[in-house]
Simulated assay, not measured.
Amino acid sequence: MIQHKSDELLPSQHQSHKLLEELHTTYLKRQRKHRSHVFSVQMALLVVFFALWEVAGRLKWIDVLLFSYPSKVFAQIWRDMISGELWGHLGVTVGETIVGFILGTLFGTLLAVVIWWSPFLSKVLDPYLVVFNSMPKVALGPIFIVMFGAGFTAIVVTTLSITVIITTLVVYNSFNEVDPNLVKVVRTFGGSRSQMFRKVILPASFPAIISTLKVNVGMAWVGVIVGEFLVAKMGLGYLIIYGFQVFNFTLVLSSLLIIAVVATAMYKLVVYLERKLLKHR
């Protein structure tokens, strides 16, 4: 009789498992449909924006000297691509941005760990971090140029002055917001501060650390462009300054458009890495 009941449970379990699979499949389809709808609306808004911009420029609704219009901007980009002039500037700026992005995230996270590890150091450094974060980094640029020379290093350090502090503040706050009950459990069982960090604090803060990468994409681009404004003889920031100097605002807008495209690509790459990393947690 016990065997008979067991045999009766198996079909029921199979049906429940099948129902869960169907619900999961339906949910995934709904999510894909939603993402596709969002992407379609985003593309539609972009097309409408460029279409209105083009019409406004052609009909002289806007000052084309200042704002140009898409066909002229794309023509400028195409000419620079064909001539090869664009690639050198793009390579320099992207290289500086990637270095500033990686180092800023790494150093900022390490500094957050050090501050969390020492409550005394945290109290000492807290006002200095807030003050330094509020300082205009453009004002620090000339100091970095004098210290490191007019080149790659000064631009990367300018970028780090933005990304490191932002990363430190965000990651450190995520450490402090971890569920205190989890911390108490580790302490109750005699866990050391090192074990607490490895077993509780870091795993719980991992999503915040990954999300910081998204913020740092934009911050790294801001830092690099600011640095190139001040000192560079190559790069997209240099092209923007040069365009302003010679009143070639089509060149300025084409550089800004390229920055937007590359920054979006970097952001999408970070989102992809986030999904892959968090998926296996």
Rank of each mutant, 00 (worst) to 15 (best):
M147D: 06
S6E: 10
V246C: 07
S194P: 04
L46F: 15
I162G: 03
V164E: 00
F120V: 09
I166M: 05
K214V: 06
I62P: 14
R30A: 07
Q31H: 09
M1H: 14
G95M: 07
L230V: 15
F74G: 04
L52V: 08
I201E: 14
R35I: 12
I201P: 03
F39L: 11
L277H: 00
L52Q: 14
K33S: 04
P203L: 03
I77V: 09
T26W: 15
K33L: 13
L257W: 09
E274G: 06
V261C: 14
I209S: 07
K268D: 06
A44L: 10
Q31A: 06
L111T: 05
F144Q: 01
G141W: 15
R35Y: 04
F197D: 06
L103G: 03
W78C: 14
A56I: 05
L19P: 00
L278P: 02
L273P: 00
M266I: 12
G223Q: 02
G243S: 02
I145R: 15
A232N: 06
N216A: 10
L52H: 09
A232Q: 12
V92H: 02
I225V: 11
N173M: 08
Y128T: 15
L86R: 09
Q76L: 02
V224I: 04
S211G: 15
L103D: 12
F247D: 03
L257R: 05
Q31D: 01
E177Y: 01
N216L: 00
I209W: 08
V131G: 08
T97W: 05
T153W: 05
T250D: 03
T97A: 13
L129T: 00
L90I: 11
L230E: 01
A139K: 00
D126S: 09
M135R: 03
V114R: 07
I240A: 10
R79Q: 12
T109A: 05
V185I: 09
T93H: 02
S254T: 11
L23Y: 10
V73G: 03
I98C: 09
V215L: 05
V217K: 01
T159P: 13
F101L: 04
P142Q: 03
L20V: 08
K33H: 06
N181Q: 00
K214Y: 03
S68H: 04
Q13H: 14
V131D: 10
M219H: 06
F206D: 01
L110Q: 02
W61M: 07
F50I: 12
V215S: 14
R30I: 10
V252I: 08
Y69R: 03
E96C: 08
N216M: 02
Q245K: 01
I2L: 14
H37W: 08
N133V: 13
K5Y: 10
H14D: 11
T250E: 09
S12Y: 14
F120L: 15
F39N: 07
V146G: 06
S192F: 07
V222N: 07
G88R: 10
G235M: 12
